[in-house]
Computed example of a mutant assay.
Amino acid sequence: MRVLVVEDEEDLRYVIAAGLRNAGYAVDAVSDWPDADIMLDLAPYSCVVLDRMVPSGDTLYALQERRRRGWTTPVLCLTALNEVPDRVDGFRSGADDYLAKPFAMVELVLRVGSLVRRAPERLPVHLRHADVELDEARREVRRAGVLLSLTPKEYAVLRQLLLHRDAVVTRTALIDHCWDEMADPVSNVVDTVVAGLRRKLGAPALIQTVRGHGFRLTDGANPS
Rank of each mutant, 00 (worst) to 15 (best):
R2M: 00
E154R: 10
L115I: 02
P85A: 02
A62Q: 13
D135K: 01
M182H: 15
M105Y: 07
L217R: 15
P34I: 07
V49E: 12
L174I: 08
Y61T: 06
L42C: 15
V54P: 05
D184T: 04
I38F: 05
V168H: 07
D180L: 11
K200S: 06
S114Y: 06
R92F: 14
V194Q: 07
D37Q: 03
R111A: 00
P204M: 06
W33P: 05
T79I: 06
P44S: 05
E140N: 10
E136W: 10
T73Y: 12
G57E: 00
W179F: 13
D131P: 05
Y61D: 13
R216V: 08
Q64G: 06
V112F: 07
L4A: 05
Y14I: 09
P74F: 10
D35Y: 07
D86S: 13
E133Y: 01
M39C: 02
G90C: 14
R69D: 10
V132A: 14
A144Y: 00
E154Y: 12
R2T: 00
A195D: 00
L197V: 09
V27A: 04
W71F: 14
V194F: 10
E181Q: 13
D219K: 00
L4D: 03
R171T: 08
A95R: 06
F91A: 07
F215G: 02
T72H: 08
E7Y: 06
L134A: 06
D58G: 05
D180N: 15
D135N: 15
L147T: 15
W179L: 02
L206A: 03
D11W: 10
V125M: 06
I38P: 04
V48G: 01
K200M: 03
V6F: 11
L148H: 14
Y25D: 01
P74E: 01
A195Q: 06
R139W: 09
L201Q: 00
P85F: 08
R118H: 08
V15F: 09
E83L: 12
R198N: 13
D58K: 11
A104Y: 01
L110V: 14
